[in-house]
């Protein structure tokens, strides 16, 4: 649904996007992740047809972004980083204007506006002037304008930036509800957002692709060791040594009030560990998987801790 091949964008001598290739499948929500100035906004602007690429290819909804720009623009809903609002308009008048320029047929316009207002939770402010509504509502209105023509592809540049925690949760819920019917690409540097909302992630740094894939695939690909954290009634050196002598266990170390056990990531030793704890009556209270968090994954990829 969204595909780029060797995309490159130069501003004079500055290379903002370098040889970027990735693919987002239909109906999924993907995150575009990267530090500031990584090229996220530039990539999104290229995909929406706002900026042309210097070289490479990009396709959205089956149309070439450069050759069939008008078709692409009909299929895309875009929320830029700065929400594009006219403060002197009312919420309703603004959505009506957006519906017109997005070529929603006149007969369906009213229904489209009502739907966008309902989905985005703007009913309370629909008659208010945009300059008088709160930041949270403005962000929602930005989303509403991106959704109004029911586009196949929705591109959101930092959709939750500047919102309070309750508003962030609401907007995330809203984005999640788009899964299936729409393909969504959202940029963010809030890592929790990616795990909560996205199916997959494209990580870029300094304009270059660092990694791309489904979240579960990436976390397992970047995990060097598998293992568990154990919480026991009592931890001492003797117990640690017992674990170290267990076959297949590569390491046992105390981390706070837990023991971290590691083994080769192609094997699974959890059953043996539980059995061992019970046999030796070690007082097993809790066991949790040693999964790689998105924060660890991101840091490893962006700081170059692990090469793909």
């Amino acid at each position: 649904m969204i595909e780029t091949e060797h995309l490159q964008k130069k501003y004079g001598d500055l290379v903002a996007v370098k040889d970027l290739s990735f693919k987002v499948e239909s109906g999924q929500i993907w995150g575009l992740l990267g530090p500031n100035a990584a090229g996220k906004t530039t990539t999104m602007r290229i995909l929406t047809g706002f900026l042309p690429a210097t070289s490479g290819k990009a396709a959205v909804a089956g149309y070439d972004v450069f050759e069939q720009a008008e078709e692409v623009k009909k299929e895309i809903g875009y929320l830029p980083e700065t929400v594009p609002l006219y403060p002197e308009m009312t919420v309703e008048a603004y959505l009506s204007f957006v519906a017109e320029i997005k070529q929603v047929p006149k007969t369906r316009k009213k229904a489209a506006i009502d739907r966008a207002i309902e989905i985005s939770g703007l009913a309370a402010v629909r008659k208010r002037l945009i300059k008088n509504i709160s930041r949270g509502y403005r962000q929602r209105l930005g989303l509403a304008q991106a959704l109004i023509h029911n586009p196949k592809v929705i591109i959101l540049d930092e959709p939750t930036i500047g919102l309070d925690p309750a508003q962030i949760v609401e907007i995330r819920q809203l984005i999640k509800s788009l899964r299936g019917e729409h393909t969504v690409l959202l940029s963010t540097h809030i890592l929790a957002e990616v795990t909560q909302v996205c199916d997959g992630v494209v990580i870029i740094n300094e304009g270059q692709l660092m990694s791309a894939g489904r979240l579960d695939e990436l976390t397992s690909a970047y995990r060097e060791k598998d293992g568990v954290y154990l919480r026991l009634k009592k931890i001492d050196n003797e117990i640690l040594n017992l674990f170290r002598q267990l076959p297949g266990i590569d390491g046992a170390a105390q981390e706070g009030e837990e023991i971290r056990l590691e083994w080769d990531r192609n094997t699974d030793r959890r059953e043996e560990v539980i059995k061992f704890c019970l046999d030796k009556q070690l007082g097993l209270l809790e066991m949790r998987s040693l999964a790689l968090t998105i924060e660890e994954l991101y840091l490893r990829i962006v700081s170059g801790g692990v090469e793909q």
């Binding site: 602007r45 929406t48 047809g49 706002f50 008008e70 623009k73 009909k74 895309i76 875009y78 830029p80 980083e81 700065t82 929400v83 594009p84 609002l85 006219y86 403060p87 957006v98 320029i101 997005k102 070529q103 304008q145």
Partner: peptide, 14 residues
């Protein structure tokens, strides 16, 4: 200045 040009130029209008 308002950033609304992104809305206009990403709409299907020429």
């Amino acid at each position: 200045k308002m950033g609304t040009e992104e809305l206009l130029f990403t709409s299907p209008l020429s």
